[in-house]
Design a protein around this nucleic acid. Structure first.
Length: 933
DNA sequence: CTAGAGCGCTCG
DNA sequence: GTACGAGCGCTCTAGC
């Protein structure tokens, strides 16, 4: 049948299907020879389901599966960096690509690709042709780039969510009709495809502008009319870039095709082609199912594995997420039933709901459980009754909830059952809350940490990000339940029905992510990192955070007052010098005073048009003028007061009288921890004034604080990793490494070393760890750039292994898309192929990451072993500051603690990595942190 | 009033 | 246009 009126064309985005299948499935291999076939299996299942689901009245008359071909397209001619951010195709996916083409042919569906064109362009061209011929088109894809084609008989169908997208759907997504989608995309850009767009303008703003002006061209022509100065400037100065972006996002409806619509007519599957292919792939279940559907005898597939226990192509698609289907558990019988199911299976996803984000002060409101994808429940415990009048909520508990004690008594054995894996997202939070209710949750798995182990550096690991990315699902936003700002309520004020949908959905999503991630851990070879460096840290950190550290509130308060007085004095002097009053805390106002009013030369404006007034700038000006020095002094006091003496007091827990930080395990890309609420990893130490803050961190009476820190750990790791014999030997012999470097570089004998020469060498040593550049070193040492470059050249000459290490590391990152620590932690470097200034950033980050990351791994290992090691001692581990561990210990046990903890720390690399340099740990003790450090 | 960007400063 | 990795308080702006 020739294509024309009454015909219905289906266009399937094959490349998207493949990636979807690959990421959704465990790394299946063909039993007979180990060929990876996970993606092919998923792809075939999708095709089979597609055929099954499209036999009714609205069946297509024509269909094609369309693929990308070649990585270089006409868009790269327009813009070299188009899609430059894309990660390389995984090794085990590459061989599956041609197999998916064969699969499509085997199903007797037209399979189309054109060298140098993206699937989207072929789809666009076919859709245009079909529309002109008077037919209807359905595009099966969830790619938003294709939305520009919608309208006039062209629809999209998101096969994952089974959702149709018509004109209205496009307006909902982009805020503009399909024909204006390219305009919005041109402005908003696309970080995934590396389309630049207009900086600072997202989809929302873009849609606003386009709707106001009618079209992109009109907008650019009349950009002067935009009231917001920043936007106006962006649109005027970035015009070329925006126009280029439009060319990049606009799909090409003129792709030269070597076939016609008529060639795409739907054909029945040919058993003689299809059955042999499925059998060759060794898809047992699918072969049987297809044979049944076609009414033929399934071919025999030899079973080459004796156990036959591995799943083959059992790739049942997960049921959709349906929050209305979750159950609210209101009595013991129902709860016992869920507990029994969890025990039968041996695992359960758990999530706790509380009245706040602070695990030390919030109250438990409810618990959700999920035992099977799509089947989850919520156990409300302390929800409040609905408000009785307009103003106040009731403090009474709502009806229809189990008693807290009763529910906890039932659920505690499950959460502590060593035979049942408890699965959560950010389990440290739940573990800390539950610990306050006497429940020691174990064993655990954590989807956030799985994601972090596999994909650090690639994307975020919060649940919303993961659900979006791996399940194509947007979870119910918490704001929908709690509101925001002043009107925000706590979770116990949320009606139980709503709470059930939200809370149980979280558990359901967590379970889905876990099932997806578990096999991927092996595939990406980070199981040892996850099981050895991430997961075991959860209970250790939970314990440290719950312990907290005592802080002397009165001391902070006194300091705060003293700082206030000094600041007031300085402020008056500053205003006097300036000849007017202004806000000293405003860099903008300060810049105008210095460079406009007072007319000081050399003011440099940054990208926002404001003068730079950072400490380095003011430091330079201070030699000529009086005011900058006073501002510097004022800023130091301001910082100490606001961030430390004042904010810290707010963090003292009223019950424990201690400060409890929270460590994020998946915060820093390199494997370092990050401390928040408050950050106790940046308490001042470098200046005398600042150290007084540290004096306020004290031990309980009868106890002392003990600090142990690694000496020069990153330089030692660099010496080992880069294999620098001279440095390794110096560390083995306990020499002053900076002095030795200086001696080597400047030919100064060690006994004639001056502090200044040593200081320069020290800066170079640090620079190397950070991925040195002439510019950076010059700025740090305040010397001319050429001189700094001379130092670097000499350094590389003297230690050629360093240069080799740096080059090799960058090359590794370019080849693999990530770098690794000595313990196998992967840190992804998606920007490594970037061009322009971003390249420098990416290179330096790649050079630094293995060093910083290995140091982070080492102290993690020490921390994980520490609780058992100090078990018999009256000591607690309180804080970690990257290379330092702080303990609180009874006075009589200090020496024992130092002995034990030092052994653990110095031996923390063993036995996995044999370092060529010793790890050395320095120890100190005192009544407060300043003394101990 | 609130959210977010940018600046500046603290630490390892 | 630049040293690597973090968090947080303040000011300022845009938008509800």
């Amino acid at each position: 049948m020739a294509f024309g009126k009454g015909c219905h064309l289906h266009l399937i985005d094959g490349s998207a299907y493949i990636f979807r299948a690959y990421h959704a499935l465990p790394p299946l291999t063909r039993k007979s020879d180990g060929l990876p076939i996970g993606a092919v299996s998923g792809f075939c299942n999708m095709l089979q389901r597609y055929i099954d689901g499209n036999s009714g009245a609205d069946a297509p008359t024509h269909v094609a599966v369309v693929f990308d071909k070649g990585s270089h397209t006409f868009r790269n001619e327009l813009f070299e960096d188009y899609k430059a951010n894309r990660e390389a195709m995984p090794e085990d996916l590459r061989p599956q690509i041609p197999l998916t083409r064969r699969a499509t042919e085997a199903f007797n569906i037209a399979c189309k690709e054109i060298e140098g064109y993206e699937a989207d362009d072929i789809i666009a061209t076919l859709a245009c042709q079909a529309r002109e011929a008077g037919g209807r088109v359905t595009i099966l894809s969830s790619d938003k780039d294709l939305m520009q084609l919608v309208g006039d008989g062209v629809e999209m169908l998101d096969p994952m969510k089974n959702r149709r997208i018509d004109r209205d759907g496009v307006v909902e997504k982009f805020g503009v009709p399909p024909e204006r989608v390219v305009d919005v995309q041109a402005l908003a850009g696309d970080s995934v495809d590396n389309v630049p767009g207009a900086p600072g303008i997202g989809i929302k703003t873009a849609a606003l502008l386009i709707n106001e002006f009618g079209s992109l061209e009109e907008l650019l022509d009349r950009a002067e009319e935009i009231p917001q100065p920043k936007r106006r400037e962006t649109l005027t100065t970035m015009r070329a870039q925006i126009e280029l972006s439009k060319k990049l996002v606009m799909l090409d409806c003129e792709t030269p095709l070597d076939f016609t619509l008529d060639d795409l007519e739907v054909r029945d599957p040919d058993p003689d082609k299809l059955m042999p292919f499925l059998a060759e792939m060794e898809f047992r279940t699918l072969t049987k199912r297809v044979a049944e559907a076609l009414g033929v005898e399934p071919p025999a597939i030899p079973d080459t594995t004796p156990e036959g226990a591995n799943p083959d192509d059992s790739t049942a698609e997960a049921p959709p997420i349906r929050p209305e289907a979750y159950e609210t558990v209101r009595d013991a019988r129902a709860l016992q039933d869920w507990i029994a199911q969890a025990q039968d299976r041996g695992w359960v996803a758990v999530d706790t709901e509380t009245t706040g984000l602070n695990e030390m002060t919030c109250d438990l409101v409810g618990i959700s459980l999920c035992v099977e994808v799509g089947r989850a429940c919520y156990v409300p415990l302390t929800h409040r009754a609905a408000a009785t009048d307009d103003l106040f909520g009731s403090d009474d508990l709502a009806d229809g909830q189990m008693k807290l004690d009763e529910a906890l008594a039932l659920i505690k054995p499950l959460l502590e059952d060593p035979a049942v894996m408890k699965i959560g997202q950010n389990m440290k939070y739940d573990a800390k809350v539950l610990a306050r209710y006497g429940i020691d949750i174990a064993p655990i798995d954590d989807t956030m940490l799985m994601s972090y182990a596999m994909n650090a550096g690639l994307h975020g690991h919060g649940m919303d990000t993961l659900a979006e990315r791996y399940l194509s699902h947007t979870p119910i936003p918490i704001k929908d339940l709690l509101g925001s700002g002043k009107a925000q309520v706590t979770f116990d004020r949320v009606p139980v029905d709503e709470a059930t949908r939200y809370a149980a959905e979280d558990a359901d999503i967590t379970l889905r992510l876990w099932q997806m991630f578990k096999p991927q851990l092996h595939r990406t070879q980070v199981t040892r990192v996850y099981e050895g460096l991430e997961r075991p840290l959860v209970p250790v950190l939970a314990q440290m955070e719950r312990a907290g550290i005592r802080v002397d509130r009165d001391a902070l308060s006194r300091m705060s007052n003293a700082f206030s007085q000094k600041m007031a004095g300085l402020e008056a002097e500053i205003h006097e010098l300036a000849g007017e009053t202004f806000n000293v805390g405003s860099p903008k106002q300060l810049g105008e005073i210095l460079f406009d009013k007072m007319g000081i030369e050399g003011g440099k404006k940054g990208k926002t048009g404001a003068y730079a007034t950072g400490a380095d700038v003011l430091e330079d000006l201070a030699t000529e003028h009086e005011l900058p020095r006073k501002v510097l002094d004022w800023r130091q006091l301001s910082k100490l007061k606001s961030t430390y003496t004042d904010a810290l007091q707010e963090h003292i827990n009223p019950d424990t009288h201690r400060v409890h930080t929270s460590y994020s395990i998946a915060g820093a890309n390199t494997g370092r921890l990050a401390s928040t609420d408050p950050n106790l990893q940046n308490i001042p130490v470098r200046t005398e004034e600042g150290r007084r803050i540290r004096e306020a961190f004290v031990a309980e009476p009868g106890k002392v604080l003990v600090s142990l820190d690694y000496s020069q750990i990153e330089l030692r790791i660099l010496a080992h990793m880069a294999g620098i014999d001279a440095l390794k030997q110096a560390f083995r012999e306990g020499h002053d490494i900076h002095a030795l470097t200086a001696s080597e570089m400047f030919n100064v004998p060690l006994d004639q070393m001056t502090p200044d020469v040593r200081r320069q060498a020290k800066a170079i040593n640090f620079g190397v760890i950070y991925g040195i550049s002439g510019f950076g070193l010059a700025r740090n040492l305040r010397i001319p750039r050429a001189e700094a470059q001379g130092f670097i050249d000499r350094y590389f000459e003297r230690f050629p292994g360093i240069k080799t290490y740096m080059d090799d590391t960058v090359a590794f990152a370019k080849e693999h898309g990530h770098v690794e620590t000595l313990f196998g932690r992967k840190i992804h470097t998606p920007e490594i192929g970037a061009k322009g200034p971003r390249a420098g950033f990416a290179w330096r980050a790649a050079i630094n990451a293995p060093i910083q990351g290995t140091a982070a791994d080492i102290i993690r290992r020490a921390m994980i072993r520490m609780p058992d090691a100090i078990d018999g001692l009256p000591a607690k581990m309180l804080l970690q500051v990257h290379d330092e561990l702080l303990f609180e210990v009874e006075t009589g046990a200090v020496d024992d603690l130092i002995g034990v903890a030092r052994d653990i720390m110095e031996g923390a690399a063993d036995p996995v990595v044999k370092l060529d340099v010793p790890l050395v740990v320095d120890a100190g003790q005192g009544a407060n942190w300043a003394e101990a450090h």
